[in-house]
């Protein structure tokens, strides 16, 4: 799962949902938390992490890409 969101740090602002260029992150308004809904469609561009105001996002590369 490329963007890994640390829910302890997440403030529930939903900015990551708005700025993801591939519509990968969807914010669940009932649970007030973001979901990485389409991990296979991540471009690994880092936009979510760049815009996250609480630095709650880490980019984790799949072994398919590392090796």
């Amino acid at each position: 799962m490329p963007p890994f969101i640390d829910m302890n740090k997440c403030s529930g602002c939903s900015i990551c949902d708005r700025v993801c260029p591939l519509d990968v992150i969807h914010f669940d308004h009932e649970k007030k938390s973001p979901i990485v809904k389409y991990p296979d469609e991540c471009w690994h561009c880092g936009s979510c992490r760049l815009e996250c105001p609480t630095a709650a996002i880490k980019i984790m590369f799949s072994p398919e890409m590392i090796y």
Partner: peptide, 11 residues
Amino acid sequence: ASLERCGAIAG
């Protein structure tokens, strides 16, 4: 997407 982060230079 959003105007702030879109296209080839989004990131």
